[in-house]
Structure formats: structure tokens, C-alpha cells
Nucleic acid binder design. Structure first.
Lengths: 191, 191
DNA sequence: CGATTCTTTGAAAACAGTCAATCTGTGTGG
DNA sequence: CCACACAGATTGACTGTTTTCAAAGAATCG
């Protein structure tokens, strides 16, 4: 399971085998069954988790019980409640598994130490954070500028591998639509 | 003008006077008149700019000519097209001044060197980026979960100082509404 | 097979956008 | 100093989109 992370760090952060071995002691492997929580609302998100296998989501629940999905994560992505992770405050949302999954958790403070000790890792994490930020901002632009249909199209194009394994009602939630509206958009497209 | 940045760095990054003097050589001061561009669409955003005085916005223009405002920046905030700044690609939007403004620009590579040379500055920038990310994600949550009215209320509460100096049509644009819709929301509230 | 879970469909109501007109305040040039 | 232009804000009537609620069809899983 650690092997997935090793491969990822080699390919993306250009770490050597020795450098990867320095990461290993700080990793915690965990298997999750579908529907199992990785983080529940109110807990502090102390870990950043690498998805070795499977699919997870981070979401909040509104007063009326509606779920709002803020992030999906599949293989080779990371997941956490970053607001809680950054601030140390209790999480406003939850993370659960949409499939049986395997994840590798790294404690925030171990992560910071690792990054301080390895400039390559630091550079990589900086780039990762930048891309995350840019993607988030593009999502805002997409919501405030496009129609529901355009947003849906863009989602499929941007995240085909998420699209193919996540229920439509969750994609609707991610896009800020009801499942009925998404269903009707899909109906129109065939014509 | 540099004084504003000095004060900011002292208060927020806890830099000493000597450390602040090490920043000074890399700063470029600039005054902008209202409506003047800091960055035009298609240019590469090479600088991160500190707002010493005034108010600016980053926005994109859709195919139909509609402006979509992604960020306002007033005193003690930073502004850039971060996607272009991060990637080196041409900007998809523009930055202009909503008031006569004074800004302090730092070249991306000077900024990186400064951050590398000073751990306090590095820690501060990391925190800043984290907060930026969290704010952006909260903006998404606010759009996909709240009504237009709630979003408007939240904006006023979160950014009263921006609200008080920016035209309503730009707030509408930031919120992803037409100016007419925002006007009607405001009309309702009095009742 | 029965029980979930997910998706689709229909009809009515709520909401937001468009277009056109009016109102307001500000500032500038004559 | 006034008149006028201009930018911003509002209002009304209409159109289009999305939600809501209720029900019924698929698909999936034990």
C-alpha cells in the first residue's frame, strides 16, 4: 500500500528511494469500507491523507440536511478537511469513503517536519497547494459565470475518472444543483 | 508608502526592522489612478502586489462581455492573478483600480528568494496561503449551499470595508448575480 | 427475490435573468 | 453657478430556469 505513495513521490516530487524511506516511518496505513468515515464533523482534522486506492468525499451538511460536497478524492489525490487541518479548529464537515478505499495518513506536524527536511518535497508541496488554489478559484469562476449545463460539461471533461465512479446525485451536490435538475440537464443533452 | 508594508510585516510576520530592510530593495512602488490597469488580460502576472492604499479588483470578462469579479483587495491585502503568477501562463483576466491606489510590487522570484532566506517570512506566507485557500473554499460552499440573500448578507458581514466602498453592481458580480437581482434582494430586506 | 439506493419524470411554485425605463447623485465644462 | 452628462441604482413586466414535492422506473446488492 505504501508502494502507491512511493511511486507517486518518485514520479511527482522526484524523490530518490532513500528519501522515500525517510517518509515511510511517518505514514499510517488505513483501510476504509464504503460509507465508513475518515473524519466526522466536529473532529479536528490532524492528518493529510493520500488515497492509494478508492474514492472519498469531503462534504458538509446544511441545516435542512442537504449535503454539499466540496471535494472528491481518488487515487493519487490527497484529502483532509483543510480548513480544520490549517487552523486546528473542529471540522465543519465530514469525510467518508464512496468505495472501499486504502489511504495513507500523515500527521500534520510530521508532514511539516518532512517538508522542512527535504527541499524537493517542499517545492512539490508548494506546487500542489498552488494548483489546489487555482482549481478552487476556477471552480468559483465556473459557478458564477457559467450555466448549470456548462458546469456539468466542464466537470465531466475535467474529472472523467471521478464522473465515472460517483453517483449522479453527488455530482449534482458538487455542482450546487438538485439531482432532479441534473437529471433534466442530462435528458436535454441527448436530443 | 513602503512604510505601510513595513508596518504590516512587523505586525503580521513579526519581522524586525533589519529584516524589513532586507525586503525593501526588492519592492517596486506604484501609484494607480482609478480605472487604471495593474494587469491586462493576456499578460503574465509576474508580481505579487501589496495594497498600501486604495482598492483593486481581479476579474475576467465572459464571451458576452459580462465581468466576473474573483477578488477585491484593499489596504493590507495582496493582489495578483495567482493562476498566471503560479504557472507563468498568460492571464485570463485583468486587475484594475477601483480607487486611486498605491501598491508595492514584488517580483515572484524575488519573493521566493526572500521567503527562502527568512523562516519567519516563510511561515507567514504559508499561513497567508492557507487562509486564502480556506476563504476560497468557503466562498464555494456559500455559493452552492446558500440562497442569494444569504450570500449577500455573508458578504457584508465578512467584508464590511469592501462593501462600503465598492459599487453594488460589482458586489453583484462577485456574488454571481445580476445587479437587478441584488437590487431586489436589498429592497426586500427593508421590509 | 426483496430491499435499498439511485435516477427519472411531471406539475406547480419560487427564483433569477432580461430588457426597457426611470430615478439619483456626482462631477465637469460652459 | 447651472446644465448636462454620466455612472450607479432601482422598478416593472416578462421570460426562462431551478426547486420542490410526489411518484414511478432502473439498477444494484445481499
Amino acid at each position: 500500500m505504501f508502494n502507491a505513495l512511493a511511486k507517486y513521490l518518485k514520479a511527482n516530487a522526484f524523490l530518490t528511494n532513500e528519501e522515500i524511506e525517510q517518509v515511510r516511518p511517518y505514514t499510517i496505513e488505513k483501510k476504509l469500507r464504503k460509507k465508513q468515515y475518515l473524519l466526522q464533523e466536529g473532529e479536528v482534522s490532524r492528518f493529510n491523507s493520500f488515497v492509494a486506492k478508492g474514492c472519498l468525499r469531503y462534504y458538509t451538511v446544511g441545516d435542512d440536511g442537504t449535503e454539499h460536497i466540496l471535494r472528491f478524492s481518488i487515487e493519487n489525490w490527497w484529502i483532509s478537511d483543510y480548513e480544520s487541518y490549517h487552523s486546528g479548529n473542529p471540522s465543519k464537515g465530514a469525510i467518508d469513503a464512496l468505495e472501499d478505499s486504502e489511504i495513507i495518513m500523515i500527521d500534520k506536524y510530521d508532514m511539516e517536519a518532512l517538508v522542512q527536511s527535504n527541499p524537493k518535497l517542499q517545492a512539490f508541496l508548494t506546487r500542489l497547494n498552488e494548483r489546489n488554489f487555482d482549481a478552487t478559484q476556477n471552480r468559483i469562476l465556473s459557478i458564477i459565470s457559467g450555466t448549470a449545463e456548462e458546469r456539468y460539461e466542464k466537470f465531466i471533461k475535467s474529472y472523467p475518472d471521478v464522473f465515472n465512479r460517483v453517483p449522479l446525485r453527488m455530482i449534482a451536490s458538487y455542482l450546487g444543483l438538485t439531482r432532479e435538475t441534473l437529471s433534466r440537464i442530462r435528458g436535454k443533452q441527448v436530443l
